[in-house]
Design a protein around this nucleic acid. Structure first.
Lengths: 232, 232
DNA sequence: ACGTGATTTTTTGTATACAAAGAAAATACA
DNA sequence: TGTATTTTCTTTGTATACAAAAAATCACGT
């Protein structure tokens, strides 16, 4: 793997893990020296990251890590269930056994991260799980949408996870069970079941994050989504 | 507008218009000199085009215009109706009057292109029309998916349009009427109607292009799948 | 002290030179 | 003649130098 690709992957991971916080200014020179590249290839990496939605670039003002405000969350909740569900259905239809094995591996990692209780590890493991289902679906159009959703999902879930909360611990346990059920549905190629499980799993994630947002005075619109959560 | 952005837009248009054919090798040096840039910024343009799905880049082998094979079409038909319909619903919900005016302008251009009968002009005008609805929807996740769909939609419609066919001329007339109806639905903020019209409009496009086996489309309303475990 | 404007510094954008990989052509050999 | 191998050429990838824009600093006047 080229140094450039390694740099790309590293930045992706660091952004997903919020090691690089939303809105952070990315300095070309220091990043280049950090990854042992000159500015030319590093800038190309930033362009690619921009195209994939990890960073935003503005003329003469450099690159920033993609921001995450309350507006983003509203649209995110609006869109995620539909895309996730359709991807999961396709995954059940198209998956190979090799991909299924990798999904089971990812689930094992998710479980152990869940036991540890580290928000970052759990979020990244969850990301990897869904990224594999996306690969199974083998649909570049939905892939483009879901990769962007996964960026925000991964970061939001870390933002709204409280390690001390017994409530959250229970939610994690449920998430693990649902992942297992999804794997079974995908293995059995039961697309409709996979959709149903995904919507449930998604509701779980949303509940966890929405409870945080609800008391916030600014996002009044989030409340109006109650009762028509995924009105598609 | 910077020379770099102009180059980007020009390449986008030329790829959509199939002035640059799918699979065509893009030579950095000649493109750079053509657009009056050096290779450094031109390569960054190519990276951005790659991120947006217009070209594919492979290590040490340069950039090619994104290809369009049978496999692509199959997945395209599978995905497009759902995404288009959801985008149109959001457009009806979120559009501003300024955007609506621009949509009407685009529709005027589409009409005159339809009278001319030039496949390229029609395809580009249709692209602009739907790109404006996408802007109205204001949803970056669906935007990422639909922009990719639009690339292939625009190119496929040119590929399968026969100017001599009276059949195709009739389809164009119907498409124009449907665009008008969509504008009315968006103006009245009737999301459900907008969905319905979009599915009809999309079926029209698909009928025109339909020369190949296609799978069942994905369900537009994912919620209706809940509980129907063995429906599919 | 506070803003305002000029100057310095930093950072981004571009061009060019060179290195490395790949493709094409020419040569050698069976 | 056909194939393998070497050589040449073309094209891509990277580093560095310089230009241009933005940000930060300083100086000045009120």
């Amino acid at each position: 793997m080229s140094r450039k690709d390694a740099c790309f992957d590293s930045l992706v991971t660091r952004i997903l893990a919020m090691d690089l916080q939303p809105g952070l200014d990315l300095d070309e020179a220091s990043l280049a020296s950090h990854y042992g590249l000159s500015r030319t290839p590093l800038r190309e990496v930033l362009q690619r990251l921009s195209g994939a939605g990890y960073v935003t670039i503005s003329e003469n003002r450099g690159a920033k890590v993609a921001s995450m405000d309350i507006t983003v969350m509203r649209v995110f909740f609006q869109t995620a269930p539909m895309i996730y569900a359709n991807v999961m259905q396709l995954a059940a239809r198209c998956r190979t056994t090799a991909q299924l094995d990798r999904l089971k591996d990812a689930q094992r990692a998710f479980k152990s991260a869940g036991l540890e209780g580290e928000a970052q590890d759990m979020a990244l493991a969850n990301h990897r799980f869904h990224a594999i289902t996306l690969e199974m679906a083998d649909n570049p159009y939905l892939g483009a949408a879901m990769n962007r959703l996964l960026i925000d999902h991964t970061r939001l879930s870390q933002t709204f996870y409280r390690p001390s909360s017994a409530d959250d611990a229970a939610l994690v346990a449920t998430a693990i069970e649902q992942h297992d059920a999804m794997i079974a549905a995908i293995e059995a190629r039961e697309g409709a079941l996979a959709i149903d499980l995904t919507l449930q799993h998604w509701d779980l994630s949303r509940d966890r994050m929405e409870r945080f947002v609800r008391p916030d005075p600014l996002p009044v619109d989030v409340l109006s989504m109650k009762g028509r959560r995924h009105a598609f």
